[in-house]
Simulated assay, not measured.
Amino acid sequence: MAEILIVDNDKYARKEIRAFIEGSKYRFLTIYEANTAQRGMILLKQNRPSILILDISLPDMDGIKFGRSALQLYPDLPVIVVTQLKMFKFVQEAINSGFSAYLLKPLSKNELYETLERLLPVGLNREINQTINGNNKFSSDLKNPIESAIQFIQMNYGYSLTLKEVADQVYLSPSYFSRLFKEEVGMTFVEYLSFVRVQKAKSLLRFSSLPIEIIAHNTGFSNPGYFATAFKKIVGKTPSEYREQFYFQEQGGGHDHDKKRIRTL
């Protein structure tokens, strides 16, 4: 799941980490906070995060021990220690425990960003980079204008795109471009754009727990209602039904209270 769990009894440290994340390209990730190991373990079991950020000094359990318990639950979970403790023995314990990073307070936001870039799943990072930054390396091939248009759409699906804007990119009049696009692709420009956006949304629905309205926005849909309509027309399910389907496949089934929780995401 595309979630970050912060376990630290210092509320100002949690607030700082949250502010850094919410001020970055990772601002669409869901963030959970806990001030004790006990609360952290509950959240850890309820929401399988993509990253665990913890302090070694917790009021009810040694942070190293908590991190080890987290790795027993999820062996591939990246664990980032953020602490004021600079002693080598703690660094060594963290390394020997299989933790992924050891960062010192006061935390550098650039160091945090570099660590997240390194540790978050590659596919999720690619989706985030495409959505936030777009791609400015497009070059039109005048001999293959429709192929070039498809490339441009794939690069910029998260933005508001019009037929005229894409036609301009391949140096064709809108009317001729529209006719040629339908002939070569078998879909109208609008149909193809919706298709691409829905395919991107399917990936985020399956591999992240981003709220549906955020996924709608990130994949270029003007509002969640239109997103749901377009998604169901192409996939045959609503976005929440599609997400629920894969959640229960991964969990091997589930109880009614679990279904209720998923529908609220």
Rank of each mutant, 00 (worst) to 15 (best):
M1A: 08
E3K: 11
E3C: 07
I6A: 02
A19S: 15
F20I: 11
R27H: 11
M41S: 10
I42K: 15
R48T: 10
I53W: 10
S57G: 07
G63F: 08
Q72Y: 13
Y74N: 06
L77Q: 09
P78V: 13
Q84L: 02
L85T: 14
N96E: 15
F99W: 11
Y102S: 06
L103W: 04
T115P: 04
R118W: 04
R118F: 06
T131Y: 03
S139F: 10
K143V: 00
K143L: 09
I146H: 04
S148P: 00
I150D: 06
I150N: 00
I150W: 00
I153N: 05
Y157L: 03
L163T: 09
S175R: 13
R179D: 11
E184L: 14
V190T: 11
V190K: 12
E191S: 10
Y192T: 10
V196K: 07
V198Q: 07
V198G: 02
K200V: 02
F207E: 11
I214Y: 12
N218V: 05
T219S: 02
S222E: 13
F231T: 02
T238F: 06
P239D: 07
P239M: 02
R243D: 05
R243W: 06
E250L: 14
G252M: 07
G254H: 14
G254A: 07
H255Y: 11
D256R: 15
D258G: 03
K260W: 06
